[in-house]
Design a protein around this nucleic acid. Sequence first.
RNA 1: GGGCGGGUAGUUCAGUGGGAGAACGCUUGCUUCACACGCAAGAGGCCGUGGGUUCAAUCCCCACCUCGCCCACCA
Length: 892
Amino acid sequence: MDIAKDNTDFPQDSGTSLPKHIDPTHYEAKWYQRWMDAGCFSTHPEAAPSRFCIVIPPPNITGSLHMGHALNLSLQDAIIRHKKLTGADVLWLPGTDHAGIATQNVVEKQLMDEGTHRADLGRERFEQRVWEWKETAQGRINDQLRKLGAAVDWRMERFTFDEQCCHAVRQAFKTLYDEGLIYKDMRIINWCPRCKTALSDIEVEFEEEGGALYYVSYPVEGTSEAIVVATTRPETMLGDSAVAVNPDDERYKKFHDKMVTLPLVGRSIPVITDDYVDRQFGTGALKITPAHDPYDFEIGKKHNLPAYCMMDEDGVITSDYPAYTGMDRFACRVKVAVDLKSQGLLVKQEVYRHSVGHCYRCGIAIEPYLSLQWFVRMKELAEPAAQAVRDGRTRFLPDRWTKVYLNWMDNIRDWCISRQLWWGHRIPVWTCADCGDISASVTDIQECPNCSSRNISQEDDVLDTWFSSGLWPLSTLGWPNSTPALKTYYPTSILVTGFDIIFFWVARMMMFGLKFGGDVPFRDVLIHGIVRDAEGTKMSKSYGNVIDPLDIIDEYGADSLRFSCLSSAGMGQDVYLSDEKFRSGRNLCNKLWNAARFILMTAPEPPSDLQKALSEAALDLSDRWILSRAKETLDEALALMEQYDLAEALHKIYAFFWHDFCDWYLEIAKNRLKNATEAEHNMITSILHYLLRWILTLFHPFIPFITEEIWQALPVGARHSVPLLAEERYPQFDFAPDDEAIRQMTFIQGLIRNVRDIRASLSIPPKTKIELLVSTDDSHKIQTMKICESYISSLSGVSRIQFGRIKDKDENRYATCIIDGVEIFVPVPSEMKDGETERLEKRRKTLSEELVRIEGKLQNESFVQKAPREVVQKEREKLVALRDDLNKITER
RNA sequence: GGGCGGGUAGUUCAGUGGGAGAACGCUUGCUUCACACGCAAGAGGCCGUGGGUUCAAUCCCCACCUCGCCCACCA
């Protein structure tokens, strides 16, 4: 077995020993600096065999990073470091998002606390103020990134509002505008009366709410009758311009072409007919308010109705309705209902639950509002973006998100991109007051390109912040310039993000990426879950259950935090975080630390030549076993990493390290070292060091700080001037796992566990050595046990093993159990016999139940006939072994 | 109204057409010279309900119940 293919030899100089207790604060910041100094985060495009690139989902500069970010960043960092360890040229590009509306709200709130308002400052000074805020927020976010250990290439840092991104935004806008894919139109859009801006459709969050359905009577002119309409928003009746009924509705046929008098306003409005009206709903009559309802607007256009605007941008009633002027929309709703009632026109009022749209940034109810806005024509952009996913050029992980994405793309609607904000990319369109020319430009223009007049002005509105986010993979790499970075790293490898921004961001990047970059922006999209607290409640500020990642880092260390996040983040699984979880992360770190400490204490200076050390003494069973398990673990973990199943990979590594390496190999090695020859000692310590390095490398992507710290304490680490991350690669082993060693070791482990079980159930004190009698005809197993006699002794407190038959008359004096057909006996003092009988009876019961099951199966003729031969054969073998075991037990 | 995901140990989740697993928690015993942030042993599950396919179903198919999420302009 050649385990030293990577040909690393151990140094002569002695390693630094690790302090008894871990203190992450002593090494985490230090290592981050060292990694940066050593250029660990930089790219090396020239030499590497493969490339890998992630652009960070840029955090909003609205505040600091929360647990969701910690999860998102931990995943990316683990992937990035994994790829570095495979030898790829890796780029992880950092940056932040100017987050138009969200950031503007944050700064506005600060101004409010200071007793002022953005209007007092004026646009320029307000923007200045936001830039100042940006500096502090960005600094804080970047500091958190460093604390978490994010291996980002700081030289490539971008901001969605920096010069390079501005250029990209303008170029993209101009191209779309010139191609007619961006247009300006008067439409009903979603308006937030608090943020005082238009919103796109997906920026509205609908929620079921308790409300009322008001039945209002509209007198039909020239008759004594009335048409009753049902509405949830009675205040909008001030802006009504018609009442619509279904043309086939018999109830209303007599009113076709009649006029009704609009209550409270006195306006005379027509009764119109339209198929859209549902006869079943309410009264079957619908009030039409073109300026305040999207569908009414469509009907209004169809029927040439005027649109009366009864509410302004603050959600306050306009001066056209003196009785209500200046009232807030909800106060107006109440007054309208009261007034109608007093005039006997409110027929009834029902309790009614319906969904109400809210602004996703400030939470207040949005208002459908008629205004002039900019839109992107989406169909032409969406089709290739959908196709790319259908073709598998971009792949969603887990796959179920593909459908969600495609469903949205296939039902796409035009995107309202103008925002009435001050913080953001100002729409790069100039209008000439003289000739009326309207043109988009990448650079600021001073004169009209058509008539050269200097009497031109730029649009006041800014772009939806997601417009610039959508360009992120392109703009960060230098687009529209054909930079080396763009050529080398576009398309990027994977995008790691949450499902909540698939439409906002992933979809837009796909569209822009294909449109402007000529290819998909990323090959894979890894969609992770959200962070919840221990009770399963989504972690959010409004629930007051947020945990600050920095607090956890302070208390447990960044590695513990990362471990907790990563081990809980199964493919697409929501992550439940709690103190319990963080403690388990800390415990793992502690275990790793102590295992390393033990190895360094035992063998501060391992032999310089691993190959030589291994050749001078024979590997024993535990050596062959652990090396085989190590190889298996490496293969499994790396395969899982390649599928981005990080949690599963981490579990495999964890189980190997803790349960195979520490629980068994280290314990056995401890004992072997006591009586080892020099050659054996060299060999064992070589393997210990070798496996420790291996374990550190495998763990490094998940818990980078502690692995680096331990690495540096190793003799081989101390000799290197640069750390693990910079120089190491995953171990390259090309030997096959030794299945026989694994089988034998599994048998021995079972044997030891059974002896321990007997000891525990008979309450034999840990310090009491016992004799063990073993009875079997299997010479191969006897051989194995003889080889492993020392393991069995040391791990189960056995002083002596005797092989052979037990004389019948002595049987009552022994506790017994059967493992793989091998009977073992432990002498029992008579006063302990009760426990033993109980234990044995329980075992007998389990075995006989199993026996009945298998017998039944084999007596079933169709099973024997139709089941695959090997399955039947296996069952038969089991039956024989089971009968044998059962007989032996029954004898006792 | 449409779609998606889940229902397996006390909890959070793996899992496979043929003997139910892990972690944490719990119980018990251990100051065993790396680690009590530890070691060892143990208890605990009609694998949501009903039907179907199959020699065989926790797993595949159908229906239902249930929890959660997303989408949709029903006043």
